[in-house]
Amino acid sequence: MAPGFHVGVILQITLSVTIIDNTLRFMGARAMPATPLITYETVASAAEALREEGKTPSVRLVKRYLGGGSPNSILKHLSDWKAGRPLIRVSEIDIDDTVIDGIRQQMARVAEGAAKGAEERAAGVEEDLRTVSEALHEAEQRIQALETELAQAREATQTAEREGQKIGEMAEHDARKAAQALEVAHSRLQEERERGDTARQDLAQAQVRLEQLPALQDEVKTLRAALAQEQQARQQAEKEKAVADTRAADVIETRDSLKTQAESLRSDLDTLKEEARIMAKESKKEISELRQALNETQQARYKLESELARLSK
């Protein structure tokens, strides 16, 4: 360990003692505010407890000992502790000047002992560096997974739009065909009705003529045969109309069903679009947060590497 490192540790501890001295003089025995979860005192206490248990303090072990906390905050305080910063707890006590002088002398001795243990604490920096690297790798994988999910959602939205458009076009085509078939059937029925009326008129005229002119019986028979044919044709046309009406009803029912399906698909498409939009918004937000955490982790990694390089000198 370089002599300059020991001197820096002693100066840091002396500065801490001076700050405590001034705090005690101005605040007296005033109660201290509530200590947050992640502070230098809590991290240093956890590190010393782990060391007493025979374990090498690390970010992961300290976080588990404290029951949570930000790895970056823990890393900062743990690095200070490993660099030799002493753990000093100020209770609600009344300390006079003679005791403070004794504390200064004692802290000087503690500084020398802390400098000797700094080399042992530096060994944990490599493990902290590995922990930060693992967190960095996990963040990068999460970003890639979110980008993949976003691409899949966009592809599903485009597919649903194409399917909905295709079903709508099919329904309109079937409806047009049904309307055309129904119009043709009505036209044929009207023509057959007109032919039947004409045949009945001809038959009536022939009967009158038959009564007046018996010689026209053959013509009457011919007209009756024609009337029978026209009646058969009309019946056939009515049957075809009934079939056409049934088919038209089926086509209309199918068209309505297809329209309902198309509306349902459009509703599902709108829902999918909204979900994709929300997912994209949340994914962008989470990606931004992960990238921010990634930057913080990289900064912590650079700090650890710098600290490791400094300790290795």
Rank of each mutant, 00 (worst) to 15 (best):
E138I: 04
E140F: 10
E140M: 11
E140D: 15
I143Q: 07
Q144F: 08
Q144L: 10
Q144K: 07
A145Q: 10
L146W: 02
L146N: 06
E147V: 05
L150S: 10
A151I: 04
Q152D: 14
Q152L: 15
Q152F: 10
A153H: 06
R154I: 05
E155K: 06
A156H: 03
T157L: 14
Q158V: 14
Q158W: 01
A160N: 02
Q165H: 00
I167K: 07
G168Y: 00
K177Q: 14
A178L: 03
A178K: 01
Q180S: 15
Q180R: 10
Q180T: 15
Q180M: 13
L182S: 13
E183M: 09
A185R: 01
R188A: 14
R188F: 08
L189Y: 04
L189T: 07
E194H: 02
G196P: 00
T198S: 13
A199C: 01
A199G: 04
R200I: 09
D202S: 12
L203V: 14
A204Q: 13
V208I: 05
L210G: 12
E211S: 11
Q212K: 14
L213I: 01
L216M: 12
Q217H: 08
D218A: 15
E219H: 03
E219L: 11
E219T: 06
V220L: 15
K221Y: 01
K221C: 03
T222G: 02
A226P: 02
A226L: 03
L227F: 02
L227Y: 01
A228Y: 00
A228G: 06
A228N: 06
E230D: 09
Q231D: 14
A233M: 04
A233E: 09
A233K: 04
Q235H: 06
Q236D: 11
Q236M: 08
A237D: 06
K239G: 08
E240V: 07
E240Q: 12
K241D: 08
A242P: 01
D245M: 11
D245R: 07
R247L: 14
R247Y: 04
A248H: 13
A248F: 09
A249M: 08
D250A: 15
V251G: 14
I252C: 06
I252E: 15
I252A: 14
E253K: 13
R255H: 14
R255N: 12
D256I: 09
L258R: 07
K259Q: 15
Q261H: 08
Q261T: 12
Q261F: 10
Q261P: 02
A262S: 14
S264I: 04
S267R: 08
D268L: 12
L272C: 04
K273H: 11
E274N: 14
R277N: 11
I278H: 09
I278K: 12
M279V: 10
